[in-house]
Nucleic acid binder design. Structure first.
Lengths: 151, 151
DNA sequence: CACAATTCGATTGTATACAATTTAATTCTA
DNA sequence: TAGAATTAAATTGTATACAATCGAATTGTG
């Protein structure tokens, strides 16, 4: 490889020139901003996104949940046991297929939705993107995500 | 609050309507795509971004590194010991200030840069964003990141 | 039907992340 | 300058992530 191409390769290798880093750092920083609001709900971030899905569905298997959240049973099993311990969800084996673990909300878990409903606007207030920029970011992330998930 | 506003709040509470989720999922999916290439370098993702910074700087303190990567000593201390164990970096206390731990590359660590230089183009080949879209995504992420870090 | 293959969730092991605390070194200030 | 305040990294404890494997249940196939 030529000296010029090698220099270009090294330029691309800089932290600031790789798209992975702002994604990684932004994700962590956004999650950090959720923390004070989620503390009030007695939820961690991963527990929060789990509850977001539970609030949308009557009943869910661990597999379906994992597919929605891009998480496997190694992460979900202890997390779901913790949410059960907090009294927010129930875990029951499916009668039709004993391999499947079905997740449902408890009354307490369902009622937590009302408190959680104020979180998105509090987060939106922390960000400096216009609604157009946020929409563009959202669109680009989902485009990238759709392709990454397939491969 | 009116019924209409409550319904709007619940709509915003859906997983797909919160910007945090595609950020979180994209970050994880991108890192997953790095893995086969990083395995060849005997680096994890966090070790890789640490080496990216090391390849840019002669010498660095843990504090400076943490500031670049948005990571604290709780994460970095074991990670840096691991990189030292692999023979990629040296850890030495500063003579001028014994509190400071200075990081430098070993010869092996420095030479790893050449192998690593091929990674960015391999990753770029996995994504479906045009260069304009990638540039826009990059710009939006850094705008958001800049503001989140300040607060 | 028998049994191989697949599926689902749990478990194990390794590596982050990060809050909170600790320890040692340095700097500030009365 | 002695003690207080601050700083840097290490340590501790909790909670993810995820690869690899396991065990039980179900499905597919000859």
């Amino acid at each position: 490889m030529s000296k010029k191409n090698k220099a270009e390769e090294y330029e691309q290798l800089k932290l600031k020139n790789q798209i992975c880093f702002p994604l990684y750092a932004c994700s962590k920083e956004v999650i950090r901003h959720y923390k004070p609001f989620l503390d009030e709900l007695n939820l961690t971030y991963t527990q929060y996104i789990t509850m977001l899905v539970m609030w949308e569905e009557e009943e869910m298997s661990v597999k379906e949940l994992g597919s929605r959240l891009c998480l496997d049973s190694g992460t979900l099993t202890p997390l779901l046991k913790s949410l059960e311990g907090k009294g927010f969800i129930k875990r029951t084996r499916s009668a039709a297929d004993e391999r499947v673990l079905l997740l449902t909300l408890t009354e307490e878990g369902a009622s937590l939705k009302e408190k959680a409903a104020t979180v998105p606007s509090k987060i939106a207030a922390c960000t400096n993107l216009s609604s157009e920029e946020a929409a563009m970011l959202y669109k680009l992330l989902y485009k990238l995500l759709g392709q990454l998930e397939d491969t």
